[in-house]
Design a binder for these strands. Structure first.
Length: 226
DNA sequence: GCATTAACCACAG
DNA sequence: CTGTGGTTAATGC
């Protein structure tokens, strides 16, 4: 744990950027920075929560234990808030967050966060914007996950990591095959098969968790056609 | 009917 | 945990 001086923070969220110096000081006094290693649980479904979390660096998976098995709802990279829906909506967390790469976050007291929303319209507006973006993304993901075939979903996942997360054609998958299955609603076996198919077809180069996209256009076509 | 898709199972590395 | 092969149920043509 470490004290965070919010006013000097170089990675302020767009909401925090509009806070007054006095509000920034109040935030700093009610905010704790914590480092998480890959695999550490940041907060857990079913546990009580009274914090909003701001991810300053790293990568996090949001996941829920469903009636049958685990499901990864989404993967979020810094900078981003976590837990606004669950902390505002419910006393108990409705989902879990786990670091899938080394991650640093700030825990912000919910009452201070609420105070900013009540008192600073600009702050509230920025938060609404982020929540709206997230909701639209999850609508899109819901449709894609439901309607696309497995190859399309797998192509989506690869493009997501390449474009959305790493901004590189080559990257190390931060998930196991099983987790990747949980992410795109399929089985570990199907993931293995499809990655191997893509590799044989020359679409990607595959070596364990290391992936390099060789034929991005074809991958996009597969994604588009489902 | 027949072909395709994708899950489930089993087993090996 | 990962890769593969066989089996099987569901769905489409």
């Amino acid at each position: 744990m470490e004290e965070i001086l919010c006013k000097d923070c170089g990675i302020k969220s767009s909401a925090v950027k509009v806070l007054s110096p006095l509000e920034l000081e109040r935030l700093g006094n009610n905010c704790v920075g914590v480092n998480f290693r890959k695999g550490d649980v940041i907060f857990k479904q079913g546990a009580f929560s009274s914090n909003i979390i701001y991810v300053r660096s790293g990568l996090v998976k949001i996941h829920m234990t469903g009636p049958v098995e685990e499901q990864i709802i989404k993967i979020t990279k810094a900078p981003s808030y976590l837990g606004i829906p669950t902390t505002f909506g419910e006393k108990i967390n409705q989902y879990s967050a786990t670091a899938i790469e080394n991650t640093t976050v700030c825990f912000i007291d919910i009452d201070v966060f609420k105070e900013f929303i009540f008192m600073n319209g600009r702050f509230a507006y920025e938060i609404v914007i982020e929540l709206c973006r997230n909701e639209l993304n999850s609508f899109q993901k819901c449709v894609d996950r439901t309607q696309k075939h497995i190859h399309g979903r797998a192509a989506d996942a690869l493009l997501f990591f390449s474009d959305g997360i790493y901004e590189n054609d080559e990257f190390i998958l931060p998930l196991s095959r099983l987790e990747l299955g949980h992410f795109i609603n399929t089985s570990r076996e199907s993931i293995c098969r499809i990655l191997s198919d893509f590799s044989k077809a020359g679409i990607i180069h595959l070596s364990g968790k290391k992936i390099k996209i060789l034929n991005r256009d074809l991958l996009k076509t597969i994604s588009k056609n489902g």
